[in-house]
Every structure is written in structure tokens, then in C-alpha cells.
Design a protein around this nucleic acid. Structure first.
Length: 255
DNA sequence: ATGGCTGGGTCTCCCAGA
């Protein structure tokens, strides 16, 4: 089973690239973040014609996530219980007996911003939900744009980023708490070169200079981690004409 | 050098992203 996750930064702009991905890689499950489309504007026909069942949870301008699969999704969730939140950041479903949860974690903007407090509150409420999901599903894959670089090795210049949003102690603690529920970073299950990232600023030649962060993650429960055969970051997706600022990440699982 | 670039909406400026 091939699974991919991609922050497309507008599905309207990136739809041709998603269709190309389908043609070239034919993933079994595709998680998208930052679709930036209301549900009524979601490109249903194009993606259903390409052979996918769709779960989408969208809003205008900001946020929006989707979960696409070759087979029928069941037990769909689109909200975090107990969190009254108009922002559309979650799409989960059971597909082929595996629980998939796709998240677009809030960015946080800056440590002194209200958005940072919202990010921490969101993560706390999400962790409660995830704890229940983990208890109910042995095979679980949590993926998406976490907007947190787990370790300094996931940051191109850790000294310059020290204490900033995306790497701050509170954010990393929140991520550790999520992983302590029994999740493993699939990317780190395999030997990796240094300085491999998943996001690069559009500005100042950040991508050609590889000044990036690894903030897009695919986290697997123990049972899923055992089945994981490979995990990768698709650099071509970021080198594309008119690219998203995020690369697509992928993992393969034996059935 | 707190800039730069991109997408979307309020639409040729502003907000947000990370």
C-alpha cells in the first residue's frame, strides 16, 4: 500500500500536479492539506474519475483537508470533539482496515501570537482524540502538515531557529506527547541523508539552497510501523513548475 | 537586510503562510 501526504497550498492551483501524481504513482491513499476550497468547489468529478473515493473538509481561503482512497472510507471524522473550531484541519477514516488521520496543524505564527495559543490548544484537544483513536485501532497512520520540526536535525539552521515558532519547546513537547501514545516517525525508520526537509520558503532561493524544515510527517502505530517498507520525501514535487512550498511525503506498507 | 515569494480575497493592496 502506497500512502502519500501533501500540503498543496491551494488545490485549485495544484490540481494538475495531483492528477499527474495519480497517473505516475497511483497511491492507494492520498492526504491533502491546505486545499483552500469550500466543499462545493472541491474538484469531485476530476478526482472521482481518476479512481478515488473522497473525504473532504474544506473552507474558503484558508485550511481545508482531504483524504482520498481507492477503496471506500468508513467511520469518517472531520472534527475534534470538545473543540469548537470553525477551521477545517482534520479528515479521518478507516480504509482497508487501517485508520488514517490527516491533519493540518495550525501554524502558530509567532510565540507571542494568539495563534500560537490556539495551536497549543488545538494540539491538546487533538491528542485527546488521538488517544481514543489509538485505543480503538491497532493499525493507525497519522499524517499531514504538523507545523513542528521534531528535532534540530529537521531544521537547516537550528541556531537561527532556536525558540521560534515551529521548533519551540512547547510545540515539540506537544508532538512528543502525541508520539508517546505509540507512534513512530516513518521517515526515521530508515537511514536518511542529513539535511532532508519537507518545506522551503518560497523566498530568497530557500529551495535551491536547501534552507528548509521537515514539518510534514507520517507517524505510524507499532503495528503499522512493522509493515512499513519505505518512507521518502519527493523532492521533484517541490522542484516542479509552480510548486507548492511543501514537498510530498510518502510511505509504503506491506499488506 | 525581519526582507524575500505565493495564493486568495476585501482584488493592484492586504493578510497569512512557515
Amino acid at each position: 500500500m502506497k500512502v502519500v501526504s501533501w500540503n498543496v497550498n491551494s488545490l485549485r492551483v495544484r490540481l494538475p500536479q495531483v492528477l499527474q501524481l495519480i497517473q505516475q504513482a497511483s497511491p492507494d491513499v492520498i492526504a491533502l492539506q491546505e486545499t483552500k476550497l469550500q466543499n462545493q468547489d472541491f474538484p469531485r468529478d476530476e478526482l472521482e474519475s481518476a479512481g478515488y473515493r473522497l473525504v473532504f473538509n474544506g473552507q474558503r481561503t484558508y485550511n481545508g483537508v482531504a483524504l482520498m482512497s481507492r477503496t471506500e472510507p468508513a467511520d469518517i471524522i472531520t472534527d475534534i470533539p470538545g473543540l469548537d473550531d470553525p477551521q477545517r484541519r482534520l479528515a479521518g477514516a478507516t480504509i482497508d482496515g487501517i485508520r488514517f488521520i490527516n491533519v493540518y496543524v495550525p501554524n502558530g505564527q509567532a510565540l507571542d501570537s494568539d495563534k500560537y495559543q490556539y495551536k497549543l490548544r488545538w494540539l491538546e484537544a487533538f491528542t485527546d482524540l488521538l488517544s481514543e483513536e489509538m485505543a480503538a485501532h491497532k493499525k493507525l497512520l497519522l499524517m499531514g502538515d504538523f507545523n513542528i520540526a521534531p528535532e534540530d536535525q529537521d531544521v537547516y539552521d537550528p541556531a537561527a531557529w532556536q525558540g521560534q515558532v515551529l521548533v519551540s519547546d512547547a510545540e515539540r513537547r506537544a508532538l512528543k506527547k502525541i508520539m508517546a501514545l505509540g507512534l513512530q516517525d516513518t521517515f526515521r525508520l530508515f537511514p536518511q541523508e542529513d539535511s532532508r526537509f519537507s518545506w522551503w520558503d518560497y523566498r530568497a532561493g530557500a529551495f535551491p539552497r536547501n534552507r528548509g524544515l521537515r514539518i510534514d510527517l507520517m507517524l505510524a502505530s507499532a503495528e503499522m510501523a512493522e509493515l512499513c517498507q519505505a518512507a521518502d520525501i519527493d523532492m521533484d514535487s517541490r522542484g516542479h513548475d509552480r510548486p507548492s512550498d511543501h514537498a510530498l511525503i510518502s510511505a509504503d506498507f506491506s499488506s
